[in-house]
Design a protein around this nucleic acid. Structure first.
Length: 333
DNA sequence: CCATCATA
DNA sequence: TATGATGGG
């Protein structure tokens, strides 16, 4: 998923306290939803579902995270993907195949009673489908959180909104929004601050990446960062086998991007993808406004339709009303 | 993922 | 008050 720039970006990832994140955040909806669907599962891999078998993991994730963000002074905007560019087709098909394979392995592991394996493969089988998107859109509306429909890639739309100052930063686990020009990217915005990795619980803290710091630090332009991405591979192209981020950085700084591509991938034309990163299609016709959560509406949707516990929903909403202080909230809505 | 409860 | 285990739908 995304682009493998980790090795050259790692030193520009700075820990950031929650107070420093107060403001408006453009959330990469697909990334967040995938994360929720992937992780919010029982140990054997079964996602949260209502009695009709409809998946509800993402609704739980959206609800608690949105309310927690509000308590931290973060107003989120969810940015949804539109039509993918035609050159993403290969990636889309590869992922589809991987999901199907993972689903089969999940079943096999279950039959063998291998719970840990089952969970692992179940995670990889997660899919953000139309039902997930529709229900997410509906819940966000009830929470009073604006959603924006991107014409194409959500990360590109989020980057645009950050560039023009409508949001302070974009939120995603992927680095693509930097390629699209997002001045600030925030990662690891989990409230619990903990994650299980191979049985161990490690602490995960929010981090911030400032595009300007990356470019200045590496002494490259955004165009060159995109060149690096094209060499290592993106969602839109395969990249050159054997070239990682560090090698790509050297190549690009030596101004050998064109020569390297010509030699290694003579049939690949990078220009359309380059242009897509540098001037992606974006929607400029949106408006952002936040309203207080619609308690009754949320209850009707989550409790009456999806069988959430009313007690849990009430206590989550009560916490927002009291702990943050009504004055603070009134200023937002 | 997050909330909640048991345990210390 | 902190940590770990468990359940949520």
């Amino acid at each position: 998923m995304g682009v493998a720039l980790r090795d050259i970006i790692i030193e520009y990832k700075k820990p950031i306290a929650w107070e420093g994140l107060a403001g408006i955040a453009a959330v990469d909806a697909h990334n967040a939803l995938y994360q929720f669907l992937s992780i919010i599962r029982q140990p054997d891999g079964t996602p949260l579902m209502d009695s009709h078998g409809r998946i509800t993991s993402h609704l739980s994730g959206i609800l608690f995270r949105t309310l927690n963000f509000l308590e931290m002074g973060i107003r989120s905007v969810y940015v949804f993907d539109g039509e993918p560019p035609h050159f993403k087709q290969g990636t889309i098909e590869t992922r589809r195949g991987q999901r199907i394979a993972a689903k089969e392995r999940w079943q096999e592991a279950l039959e063998k009673g291998e719970i840990g394996e089952a969970y692992k493969h179940a995670r990889s089988s997660a899919r953000v489908d139309a039902a997930v998107i529709d229900s997410s859109w509906q819940l966000l509306h009830l929470l009073g959180v604006p959603s924006v429909q991107a014409p194409s890639e959500g990360e590109a739309q989020a980057a645009f909104m950050a560039q023009i100052g409508d949001v302070q930063y974009s939120v995603s686990q992927d680095y693509d929004s930097l390629l699209f020009g997002s001045p600030v990217l925030a990662r690891n915005l989990t409230v619990s601050g903990k994650r299980k990795v191979r049985g161990r619980t490690i602490s995960i803290n929010p981090e911030r990446i400032i595009l300007k710091e990356v470019l200045n630090g590496l002494s490259i332009t955004r165009e060159q960062l995109v060149e690096i991405a094209l060499l290592v591979g993106t969602d839109f192209n395969e990249g050159v086998h054997g070239i990682g981020a560090k090698t790509a950085l050297k190549i690009v700084k030596r101004r050998e991007f064109g020569a390297t591509l010509e030699k290694e991938l003579p049939d690949f034309d990078p220009v359309p993808i380059m242009n897509f990163f540098l001037q992606p299609p974006v929607n400029t016709d949106y408006k952002l406004s936040w309203t207080p959560p619609d308690r009754e509406g949320i209850r009707r949707m989550l409790c009456d339709q999806y069988e959430f516990s009313p007690e849990r929903i009430d206590s989550a909403l009560d916490k927002l009303a009291t702990t943050s202080g009504q004055k603070t909230l009134d200023r937002w809505f």
